[in-house]
Amino acid sequence: MDTAAPQDTGRITYRDAVEDDVPVLVPLVESAYRGDSSRTGWTTEADILQGQRTDAEGVRAVITTEGSRLLVVEQDGRVIACCQLEHRGEAAYFGMFAVSPALQGAGLGRLIITEAERRVREIWGVREMHMTVISVREELIAWYERRGYRRTGRMTPFPYGDERFGVPQRDDLQFELLVKDLV
């Protein structure tokens, strides 16, 4: 999946999302994680969670909250990926990472996470990047480990009963904190 060199994907640009991007970003995130469209890529959560991954209100909150931004990735002017960056003291939080399923597996994710790490060091001067991943997502966790993230064993419960985060298909879901030193 991530062993191939990035293919020629056209001109890739990065910018901070604005509220007008919400109608494009919500379906992008949904397509990368939920439903049949997500099965085209390898980051699907469709077998462990159904329902929504996010909604317009959640995306708008990431865009408009102080100390938070949603990095939009465009290829030749078309939105193809995004990720949340949030300033949390000495660390930044990385979340809501979505790459269009048709473009997954070609090295684009690796480029985006590298750019996100560069930006949080430059903008906020942080020393670590934090993220949470559903602990049963072993393949995804292994991908992040190859990018230098380490498992901490620190778990937080999945918000069962709150359908804003999806409808769990199993009863053992929890989030594990992954951390990477950026210095």
Rank of each mutant, 00 (worst) to 15 (best):
D2P: 13
D2C: 13
A5Q: 13
P6Y: 06
Q7E: 15
Q7K: 15
Q7N: 13
D8G: 04
T9H: 15
T9G: 13
G10I: 00
G10C: 02
I12G: 06
D20Q: 15
L25P: 00
L25G: 03
V26L: 01
V26N: 00
V26I: 00
P27M: 04
P27I: 05
L28K: 03
E30T: 06
E30Y: 04
A32V: 02
A32F: 04
G35R: 01
D36V: 15
S37H: 14
S38E: 04
R39W: 11
T40Y: 11
T40M: 10
T40V: 15
A46N: 00
A46K: 05
I48Y: 02
Q50W: 11
G51F: 01
Q52I: 14
Q52K: 09
T54S: 01
D55Q: 02
V59R: 02
V59L: 03
R60H: 10
E66R: 14
G67P: 01
G67A: 08
R69L: 12
R69A: 11
L71T: 07
V72S: 06
V72Y: 06
E74C: 12
Q75V: 11
Q75D: 08
D76E: 05
G77Y: 10
A92P: 01
M96K: 13
M96D: 10
M96L: 15
A98P: 01
A98N: 02
V99F: 04
S100V: 12
L103A: 06
L103F: 02
Q104V: 00
G105D: 01
G105Y: 00
A106T: 14
G107H: 00
G107T: 07
L108S: 01
L108R: 07
R110T: 14
I113Y: 05
T114V: 12
T114I: 11
E115Q: 07
E115Y: 05
A116M: 02
A116R: 05
A116K: 03
R118A: 11
R119K: 01
R119F: 02
V120I: 11
V120N: 06
R121P: 06
E122V: 10
W124V: 03
G125W: 04
R127Y: 10
H130Q: 11
M131H: 09
M131I: 11
I134P: 01
I134F: 04
S135L: 12
S135D: 15
V136Y: 10
V136E: 07
R137A: 09
E138M: 12
E139P: 13
L140V: 08
I141E: 08
Y144D: 00
E145T: 06
E145C: 08
R146F: 09
R147Y: 13
R147N: 14
G148L: 07
Y149A: 00
Y149R: 05
Y149Q: 07
R151C: 09
R151S: 03
T152W: 02
M155P: 12
M155L: 15
T156C: 11
P157V: 10
F158K: 06
Y160T: 03
G161V: 04
D162P: 04
E163P: 08
E163V: 12
F165C: 08
F165V: 09
G166M: 02
P168A: 10
Q169C: 09
R170A: 04
D171F: 12
F175Q: 03
E176P: 10
L178K: 05
L178Q: 05
L182V: 06
